[in-house]
Design a protein around this nucleic acid. Sequence first.
DNA 1: CCGATCTCTGGACGACTGTCAAGAGTTCTC
DNA 2: GAGAACTCTTGACAGTCGTCCAGAGATCGG
Lengths: 210, 210
Amino acid sequence: MTTATARRTPADKHDERRRTLAESALRTLGELGYARSSLREIANNSEFSHGVVHYYFHDKLELIVFCVKQYKATCVHRYDGVVADATTADELVSGFADKLVETIVDEAPMHRLWYDLRSQSMFEESLREAVLHIDQTLEDMVWRVVSTYAELADAEPAMSPSVVYGLLDGLFQQALLGYLCEREGVLEGLRAQVHDLMPMLLRAAVTPRG
Amino acid sequence: MTTATARRTPADKHDERRRTLAESALRTLGELGYARSSLREIANNSEFSHGVVHYYFHDKLELIVFCVKQYKATCVHRYDGVVADATTADELVSGFADKLVETIVDEAPMHRLWYDLRSQSMFEESLREAVLHIDQTLEDMVWRVVSTYAELADAEPAMSPSVVYGLLDGLFQQALLGYLCEREGVLEGLRAQVHDLMPMLLRAAVTPRG
DNA sequence: CCGATCTCTGGACGACTGTCAAGAGTTCTC
DNA sequence: GAGAACTCTTGACAGTCGTCCAGAGATCGG
């Protein structure tokens, strides 16, 4: 009856539990990776027992996909603040580079999980729909940064959103691996690389000022 | 006694068997990925039984690492012909782009395995040494292409070998995933992207001709 | 041709996996 | 507060996994 009002009881609790479970699962997944995370291990790192997973999720795969989609939702607006706050092109580049570095430091487990899942989707077709959707969302996120950067620089992007995302993703992935291997200077390197690369993503302004 | 002469008998046969086993294993690994390839499945797809693996390899991990190193050895000179044959910068770019596309078509399973292993190495420290070594070899390979391209174009590279490799690897990985998802136009897209990107990897010639 | 060494098979092991179901515990409804 | 509905625990199941091993078969030196 009361479908519109925010009564907290019936199916909301169910969804909330799913989210709580997914959050616990993400911790384990980020630590062990997709392949080595068993449902028992996931449950051990949560406040539930291993059987409860099949009460809230039909499958292990459904749990995994739900987890990744949940992670995506919390991660996809990470750079919105940078885009909104920047008033000059240089400021945007610096903020973007800093945020990329911060992401690696703060969320390395989540991002290696993402690359793990994307690799798995090359083998397992059932993962592809979710992976492609997330990839598209990340591409959109990057494009918001680059197109804003172009506007601030009074220029226009020289490449398609897909290419820009591919290039930056390659650098990010490389830096993440280097960071996990505790290589010296990877973070500063990434920051410098972004500063170098961003201007190359722009075509010379059609109408140079004046 | 005869350590120098090429007598084919004693330990050579042992090594040859290791290579044969590794080749069979690579087929299975490329099809199923690292996580889902069991030793029994690997043995089933070969002419041996599952017990023989522990006769030639101490570990599953030793087998895997041996396989990947063997693959690397056959793959790392893929672009040498293009580099040697090209007489102009444009020719080199075209040959390189064609070879990248050809690689995706002919060796998609091997390359998704590579990305799988590299992702796994973010979780499993025991894989990192081999992965980092292969990554370095691939970076060198790419750098041979780009530095030759710069010479032919009478310019010099604008970025470090590491950055160049990261950028191209990002595009390649994106194209591989798209190809495996049977997306239309990914191969032509990759070719065009390489044509667009390569000139940007060069700094303007110090001494413009004339 | 016999004994020694190398090569390989096939089965067994304990551990671990995803899935499920029976039932205990809890919460809600009337 | 009794009964129904929901939530969760626990144990069991059929598989699969990596690993190991006893012994068959092959190969080779003498």
